[in-house]
Design a protein around this nucleic acid. Structure first.
Lengths: 210, 210
DNA sequence: TTCTAAAATTGAGTCAATTCCGTTTTTGTG
DNA sequence: CACAAAAACGGAATTGACTCAATTTTAGAA
């Protein structure tokens, strides 16, 4: 009957607690020693559970990272809501502000190395729990960009005859690909990434602004 | 003195032969049993070399796949040259033709599963031989799209004041991201992928056509 | 042809993720 | 409280990528 979060009962509470301990231990170790460097055995010891138990909670090492990525991206989505609700009064700035929030918030908890692993796993195992969650997060971001565009169309800053769906995909796909290249190069700087994306979007802005 | 392909000498010939045998064995096994399913030991047996020898030729399992991917993408680049040299007389068709060639030629030797693995490895290990080669291939494709745009500008089909570099990146990044999503879903069809990309590019075409 | 150094091969050994299944804990019922 | 079924735990065993030191093969000089 109760599918979610019936926290009465010892079992459920212990379960939630173990989940939390595993995630915390893993997050700390991923940060400190890198994804590959963090051994499951070490995570288990740190979380005070056995190796077997970890695999009872997560299908594989990647799913542990996945849980952390989900938290991060959900915060990013949350931060983005403000921009969509109240966008800057100019198309270029509106896009730059929203994408800027995505980018700036993305390295709060996750290192570039963790992002690389997360992206790799999501393409490697698209049907694992994490793979599906990652795809859903991408879609949510695309949808938020589409929502911003719809908003700008409603305000009258973007031409009404523009295909908002296709435009949203274009903007997201480009940003995402640029972000992938960004995390692949440890030396790459956020400011350069944002500048490059602004330059690319300038073409679009010129095409769609009223 | 001779850096490349001095095929005289027993050693050099054996080397080339072993390279070929390893690649052929691996390609067949990746296709038949999938990347994960293909054990190094099996590849070694099939190629009639030892496990150690494989690691003498390739740094890791991913690099073997990398060698196959390189061959495939180089064929794609080659096929693309014809379009750049002689593009259709209309911006939309020109882009569609070039990207169409990329997409249609990409599943000749590689299965979707092999692509997924290749993409995953290239983000996971961006500094491995394969990781760097993959990035170079991406850049070569971007450059070819940019060359097509420059050609269209020269012909007078695309406005001269368009930032060709940024536009090339935009078009490539969008296609690449769409291709990634395409290989992540086994059911996705090439025709749908091309249609989706055409729809997205329509926005750009409207903006840049003279 | 013979010999030596350099290059290449080999496969047993290491390491870490994942699986498996016997044991322990929790729950609900009488 | 006692008990049986269900759920969760633990950690040893398995598996497969990758390493490394010993051995074999090749190249080139004498």
């Amino acid at each position: 009957m109760w599918q979610i979060a019936d926290m009465s009962g010892l079992r459920a509470r212990q379960k939630a607690d173990r989940h939390r301990r595993i995630i915390e231990a893993a997050a700390a170790l991923f940060r400190d020693t890198g994804y590959e460097g963090a051994k499951i055995e070490t995570i288990a010891a740190q979380a005070e559970v056995s190796v077997g138990t970890i695999y009872n909670y997560y299908q594989n090492k990647g799913d542990i990272l996945g849980a952390i990525v989900s938290m991060e991206v959900n915060e990013v989505l949350n931060a983005g809501r403000g921009v969509v609700a109240n966008p800057p009064a100019n198309v270029g700035d509106a896009l730059d502000t929203l994408l800027g929030i995505y980018i700036e918030h993305s390295l709060h908890y996750l290192s570039k190395e963790m992002w690389r692993q997360a992206m790799a796993i999501s393409t490697q195992l698209p049907d694992s729990p994490f793979g599906q969650a990652y795809t859903a997060l991408d879609r949510a971001l695309t949808e938020q960009i589409r929502a911003l565009i719809a908003r700008l169309q409603a305000i009258g800053l973007v031409r009404r005859d523009i295909d908002g769906q296709a435009l949203g995909e274009l903007v997201f796909n480009n940003m995402n690909m640029m972000f992938i290249e960004f995390v692949k190069r440890d030396k790459a700087k956020i400011a350069e990434l944002r500048a490059a994306i602004r330059r690319q979007n300038r073409i679009l802005v010129a095409a769609i602004a009223v």
